[in-house]
Design a protein around this nucleic acid. Sequence first.
DNA 1: TAGGCCATGTAACCGGTTACATGATTAG
DNA 2: CTAATCATGTAACCGGTTACATGGCCTA
Lengths: 182, 182
Amino acid sequence: MNAKTLILAILNFQEATGYEIRKMCTEGPYSYFVDISYGSIYPTLAKLEAESLVSSRIEQDVGKPERKVYSISEKGRMEFVGSLATPPALDKFKSEFLLVAMTAEYGNPTTIAKAIDMRIAYLEGQLEMIRTHTENCEHQGTCWVGGYGEHVMQCDLEYLKKNRGALMALAGTAHNVPAAAE
Amino acid sequence: MNAKTLILAILNFQEATGYEIRKMCTEGPYSYFVDISYGSIYPTLAKLEAESLVSSRIEQDVGKPERKVYSISEKGRMEFVGSLATPPALDKFKSEFLLVAMTAEYGNPTTIAKAIDMRIAYLEGQLEMIRTHTENCEHQGTCWVGGYGEHVMQCDLEYLKKNRGALMALAGTAHNVPAAAE
DNA sequence: TAGGCCATGTAACCGGTTACATGATTAG
DNA sequence: CTAATCATGTAACCGGTTACATGGCCTA
């Protein structure tokens, strides 16, 4: 999914500034399946406005930085609904951790242990985040997606905890490991 | 994970041609957590050879196209083992499907149904693929990762099947949907 | 007074994709 | 005879990241 569709989808639900969009995508309910940064949000917003799919207004509260609040236009809404007609692309998933796990025999046990534990901690944090989002969640689609993430992450954690030992047993068992800079 | 590390990791296990590497990454045991295409494999292989982290030899069987088989060098092995020392980056996950699910109320029910069912079919295919890989699997790290994928995908499917109805109930329920080109 | 949050933006860079070019062999 | 598989590569393009620039307010 490109930044354009994503931002249109967000603005379809609510008005927002670039800053807020970024927050939603890194800490908010979108963060589970999305990944985007300032460097693409602001330019995209500008392009969207140039195509008049969104409009903006400046808000100025005393003692606060200027906010540029974007709203979706009727044309933008049509674009968005239209984009929903094409079947969604497959998920993209990349995991460095799994490469490390696969090659565990070459890794130093301490490093592997740290990698597993950091992953567990990360997933637990994510789970907690999702739970706070879905706890008092009024939007049903968001609940559905939140429940999805919660379920899958729980399974993920389950496997990790249950099989931590098995992976650790492999760590560093390879022969012919060159004396590398560690 | 960049193409370089990934290819080095693969070549650390076995010699391979660019074509074979690509196969492993799209249909083989790496396909679950990796995503790479010819356009990055061949140039990367060339770069790797220029840095003498890998070497190549030409194989020519009668009646078959020429094969350029790459092997990792001692220097490459060291580079690879060294790269295992830095903690792995967080997983990258992007899902268009989940965006569609979140905005299900704006989607046409038929489209949503198709999206869910295609996802189910896809996951079932992936699961089967993983199972064939892990069934007679001699490399333990690969088994561990395969088991991981299997477990998580099973949970994924579970949620999808159990909550298909709930999502369908939301499909197309939004008011104020512009008469878009569908 | 240091660091974090609010807030907007730009420029350079890069990793990787898509599409193209080429061609032989084999299976249906 | 057609489609798929084996096999290698290039060039243009692009979406997005990283790092930078700027600055005021609030909290510890």
